[in-house]
């Protein structure tokens, strides 16, 4: 990563912070509470980026992803997904360790070495066939486990919904991913492109489902992102109604 791209990143962060600081907080007590609860001080700018992302999804990503889904046989697509998952494993190993989740760290390390060798570069997910699949971890989740608040909601160009915490996490994930430093720019772009097409092909129907009948698709995406992220931070144990809460016992 060059010095100039780091400076660009810092400039973007500074603009975001300035915009958050300048956001107008309503005086009305009810509106004030809702504003704080929603935690989306950049909403007008976020909506603009969101509209761009949706247009990009509809006109560029979806046609490619659907062609990929409809014309590439499932075993090949499964292999591609496995390779991409395996390439993300070093980030999971690091962050599982940072969170003190040494079981997941050991499992991810084992998966990475088995799949990279016997699994032919991750094409075959051998441990998953025996029922073992480590949870995906990233630095945004690590920050949450360390107690950092999620910060304001953000919509990133192409990457979509995020928060200040997850955006910082995404930057750290890129910096701490060994492949960032090992791959040539051409291979890096290929990997990122494949990742986006693969995830769009897998999630296309769910996105359509959320969109169907949404009163405000931007707000729906914002709340679904936050709820799904909370579930990931809780290691996939979603308990919105307190079924497992033992504090009242």
């Amino acid at each position: 990563m060059s010095m100039s791209s780091m400076m660009r990143g810092s400039a973007v962060a500074a603009v975001v912070l300035l915009a958050v600081a300048c956001a107008e907080v309503p005086d009305d007590p009810l509106e004030h509470d809702v504003f704080l609860e929603t935690n989306d001080p950049l909403e007008p700018a976020n909506r603009t980026v969101f509209d761009f992302d949706v247009a990009f999804l509809d006109h560029a990503l979806s046609p490619v992803a659907l062609a990929y889904r409809d014309h590439v046989p499932e075993p090949v697509r499964g292999g591609v997904s496995n390779v991409l998952d395996n390439l993300q494993m070093p980030v999971t190993i690091l962050n599982s360790g940072l969170q003190g989740d040494f079981d997941n760290m050991a499992g991810a390390t084992m998966s990475f070495f088995i799949n990279s060798t016997a699994g032919i570069g991750g094409l075959f997910d051998i441990p998953a066939n025996s029922g073992w699949k480590p949870r995906r971890e990233d630095f945004g989740q690590t920050l949450a486990v360390w107690g950092f608040a999620e910060g304001p909601y953000l919509v990133l160009p192409v990457a979509g919904p995020s928060t200040a915490r997850d955006t910082v996490g995404l930057g750290v994930d890129i910096l701490t991913d060994p492949l960032t430093w090992l791959l040539t720019p051409g291979w890096s772009y290929l990997r990122s492109g494949a990742d986006v097409i693969d995830s769009t092909a897998r999630e296309h129907d769910r996105i359509d489902e959320a969109r169907m009948g949404a009163i405000d698709f931007y707000a729906t995406t914002r709340t679904l992102y936050r709820q799904a992220r909370a579930r990931e931070i809780a290691n996939g144990v979603a308990d919105p109604f307190g079924l497992d809460d033992s504090s009242e016992e």
Binding site: E31, V34, E37, T38, E43, A214, I215, D216, Y218, A219, T220, R222, T223, L224, Q227, A228, A230, R231, A238, D239, P240, F241
Partner: peptide, 23 residues
């Protein structure tokens, strides 16, 4: 009174969605 699919609560989703429109 509510249901949650994979942890995503219907009422919470609607409440968050509606709040922006009402504002």
């Amino acid at each position: 009174t509510d249901f949650a699919i994979e942890g995503l609560s219907m009422v919470k989703t609607l409440r968050d969605e509606f709040a922006g429109v009402i504002r």
